[in-house]
Design a protein around this nucleic acid. Structure first.
Lengths: 333, 333
DNA sequence: GACCCTATTGACAACGTTGTCATTCAATGA
DNA sequence: TCATTGAATGACAACGTTGTCAATAGGGTC
């Protein structure tokens, strides 16, 4: 900047004004300085700016073990997209589930004086942020504060479950199986509630004999018994015409069992998943109709909440889980 | 810091010395100041530090459309793990494949005076970084410079292909099918080379009639013909005893075809994949033996190369693709 | 001609940190 | 006793930017 000022024969401040589209600057001066700016390829120093203004354009993003559910990175993409244009950026780091490291990261974020922090979880759960001596705003993504003392953006699993059941019911299915996820997960509980509500709304009685657990044990060492459940359901004399799968991975396993038993999808059996992991839902044949986890929107929403926040009450914000229609469900007519 | 100095009754500089474990400071003074440091929860301002020293502890990470192959986020994790301890962090942003936005990001990285930039691609390919007027070091991850004028860290697909074939050959398979990926991809070419080399090394002649394309068209609008290929291979009178799959998604589709035809894995047919997308490889039944793409190591290596670089020649660094043995291959005895 | 107004520009300080150099003080050796 | 050393500490500048306020000049009004 100094260099530019020197070459253009103006003061450093005038250059600053031009860089910031500030106040009134003579058009001729502006043009002259501009030329040198582009010629020297000047880029303002964020560190200096921030020091001067005390404000930062950087938002911290802390994740836990994000790798487990691969598509949760979409939270990051969503956050980025919300930052577009506002020239903001993301400083990201992963705690890998280690509380000590998490403390370290809070310090790190403070050291960078980030404008706020988003804590993103890999699956819908509660989280205790604690009191990280951090003045800026904290928004939880894909998780919520144990005491709801902070803003949490979470998928509306209840509505998603409702969607699953409603879709099948509306297409004439009445005998509907359900293979659940691990009992301890929030998603399991919420989705089930949604499903039951859909049955009630449709005036169809819910047959809980057709609801089987897909996983047993304790997270994260649970074992899958999806195949057993699938075999059981598909071997009933009065076989269900459709199965609601706890998620896409469950659906994938049911596909395979169905193929082994010569049950064809969707002719003999309709399946609906949850999560919309494209890797699965678009690779299976036929492609899987499923309910999507709105990771992208969660990330986007988290950033937006951070911008607007201002302590507008500390509740959870639910993001809808849209149905993605593909080819695994048949209408019974 | 000023506040701490005031409270401890020392100069600002002394506090600085203590924070940086600098030179000689009287033990008593140190203890006294320390107390105030922790009490006020002091964290040094990175922006100021950086401005003073001109050095930054932040590395930029630019990705293209990272969402498509979900596990490529492991590059980010790897990069982070290499940064551990050195209190470095990642400033990340995604170009979403838009060259204009990419330019913008280079500016942004310059504005933050990052110590270097890692450009990470979602799949193994060449990339033209151009001349982004960026003084610091640039390392390509999962891609390489068109002219090899920059350091590129890429998976050793050739060796991975070799591994796939070697494994099956060593277990007695001789009649081995191969369903390839889209012809235009580097991975396709390299893996095929590796496979052929393995056959040669084993003294087995390579039967190219058993090699079928799994995809046709032009990326990224290709269409999958994996099922056709699988049906064809499995209906041969002299059916192959094993199939090498271009990647795990291909394997997944072959599983389903096999189930439909009553061909059981691994009794009647051995399958080996590529990529090790856990979502697939660990969910399929039986679990898929495959060759892993070392995303994590690529990210880690990229950061390490950046630290050591010093223009040690601009070639590609290959990272090995390890075999992950599970249950989809049978030994013929 | 004295006055004011506006448009344009520049001087200076400050943000929080650390490198450089100077200062103080006590202990050591001659 | 006095010069010399070394340990401990502080004053000050500088990094690149921008907010504040002052300065300059040209143009118009009375």
């Amino acid at each position: 900047m100094r260099e530019v000022a020197k070459r253009a024969g103006v003061s450093i401040k005038t250059v600053s004004r031009i860089v910031n589209d500030d106040a009134a600057v003579n058009a001729k001066t502006r043009a002259a300085v501009q030329k040198h700016l582009t010629h020297l390829n000047y880029v303002p120093n964020q560190a200096a700016r921030q020091m001067r203004s005390g404000e930062s354009s950087v938002i911290g993003l802390m994740t836990d073990v994000i790798t487990t559910t691969p598509y949760s990175v979409d939270i990051v993409r969503g956050a980025q997209s919300a930052l577009q244009g506002s020239h903001g950026t993301l400083l990201i780091a992963s705690s890998e589930g280690d509380p000590e490291r998490e403390q370290e990261l809070w310090r790190m974020f403070r050291a960078h004086r980030v404008a706020g922090v988003i804590y993103a979880a890999m699956f819908h759960r509660s989280h205790d942020v604690g009191q990280p001596a951090f003045g800026e705003s904290i928004v939880l993504a894909n998780c919520y504060d144990v005491n709801d003392h902070r803003i949490g953006i979470v998928p509306d699993d209840e509505q998603g479950g409702y969607e699953q059941a409603r879709y099948l019911l509306s297409r004439g299915h009445r005998r509907i199986g359900f293979i659940t996820l691990l009992e301890a997960l929030d998603a399991t509980y919420l989705r089930r509630s949604g499903i039951r509500r859909a049955f009630k709304d449709a005036g169809v009685s819910y047959n809980s004999d057709l609801e089987l657990p897909g996983y047993v044990g304790k997270w994260p060492t649970e074992t899958s018994i999806v195949r057993d459940a699938a075999f059981k359901l598909l071997k009933y004399a009065d076989r269900p015409t459709a199965i609601i799968c706890g998620n896409d991975a469950v659906a994938m396993q049911v596909y395979s069992v169905a193929a082994e038993l010569g049950v064809s999808i969707p002719q003999d059996l309709s399946l609906i998943g949850f999560d919309d992991l494209r890797l699965i839902s678009e690779t299976l044949y036929p492609k899987l109709t499923t309910v999507a986890l709105p990771y992208f929107d969660i990330g986007k929403c988290a950033v937006e909440m951070m911008k607007t926040e201002r302590k507008t009450g500390h509740q959870r914000t639910l993001v809808a889980c849209p149905l993605v229609e593909r080819n695994s469900c048949r209408a019974l007519m």
